[in-house]
Write a protein that binds this DNA or RNA. Structure first.
Lengths: 195, 195
DNA sequence: TCAAATTTAGAACATTTGTTCTAAATTTGA
DNA sequence: TCAAATTTAGAACAAATGTTCTAAATTTGA
């Protein structure tokens, strides 16, 4: 494994486990038996590490979206998209736990996230329209509610992990199930059979 | 104004404006023309300042809940509770933006928040039962959905501000309206007239 | 093979941070 | 009023942090 890669892996692990507040470049370097000087040869500034990790996340989301284009858009597609996304949030948890702070610290990340969420919003709106067209969702949903629903979706997607940390602290699969269920509750009233 | 009070006001202002990452006790002291030594005479540790600010927030929430007991529980009561709560979140925004981090840093805050949210959950469940009994909400909502709905409520309540920072960055009243609307969308399907 | 490019360790540095200490100034209340 | 309690300013300190520098080790590729 290349040094750059080792640094990023170690950084992700430590940030996730101990929080960006408590981890310095020295910790990261030490955890892989590397000198601090060498770490800063590969990443001149601390923020370059965070930026690189965010790029990984953004790339993974791109893959997710590309993948979603090629499957039939039904209810199970929603479940799959949600689960995949939840897993990414979990993998890069430190980003989501400190998103606002990181966004202010590194404006490029805020901007990139904004683009990402906009693309994903379009994707979800398409899924909804499809579910309505296929008679799975009710067809009397006001437009404003559709975008409102998408918004709820993203709030849960981005902050379920923080909410879990603050409340029940479910672990692993349990946490995923708990908030997958929250998504189900969100969609429940929009299913045609409950009209 | 007493020194302690001045410190807390200045701390809240600076933390909110510039983030806990960028504000030190020296900044706080300097902003009110006080020496750092004196600040630490009043608050031995930085975390004591944060803890005191959180106590203010918790106290305000207690007041909110006590107040809610004495008004009729109808739809406008929900709107009022939401708006009041949103305003508190906005007043102590730095706490909500760094909640997980602060909770890990100062476990007493995490614990106190856990108690608070549990109490508020009960309060909201009561409101819902009341709205069902009064024929405003549908009466065919599964129990699991009720608690699910309350959960959504709290996720939006605690993280609307972070979501806003990351996306549209609405300002002032605009932001409040935007997310009050999100709550409305959440409740919309549960209104009896849309059954 | 061997010179050039790269990676690496470790020392060094300036700055910042939280906190403590001391001694002076101010306030309090009997 | 004046001694005791409190508040205050400012210096001081140790630890940590991000980053740079230097010189050695290693790798690369013609």
């Amino acid at each position: 494994m290349k040094s750059k890669e080792k640094i990023l892996n170690a950084a992700l692990l430590l940030y996730n486990e101990q929080g960006i507040r408590n981890i310095t470049t020295r910790h990261i370097a030490a955890s892989i038996g590397m000198s601090g000087g060498n770490l800063h040869y590969h990443f001149k500034h601390t923020e370059d590490i965070i930026r690189a990790l965010f790029d990984e996340l953004a790339l993974a989301y791109d893959g997710l979206m590309a993948n979603a284009q090629s499957v039939p858009l039904d209810l199970s597609a929603i479940a799959f998209l949600t689960e995949s996304s939840f897993k990414l949030v979990n993998k890069y948890r430190f980003i989501f736990i400190n998103f606002v702070e990181i966004g202010n610290w590194i404006p490029e990340i805020r901007d990139a996230y904004y683009q990402l969420i906009r693309k994903r919003e379009q994707q979800f709106l398409k899924v909804f329209e499809n579910l309505i067209a296929n008679g799975i969702f009710r067809d009397d949903i006001p437009t404003s509610n559709k975008s409102g629903l998408v918004k709820q979706f993203f709030i849960i997607n981005d902050f379920w992990l923080s909410h879990n940390e603050l409340t029940d602290q479910h672990v692993g699969e349990d946490a995923l199930n708990e908030y997958q269920n929250a998504i189900d509750v969100l969609l429940w009233p929009y299913l045609k059979r409950h009209q």
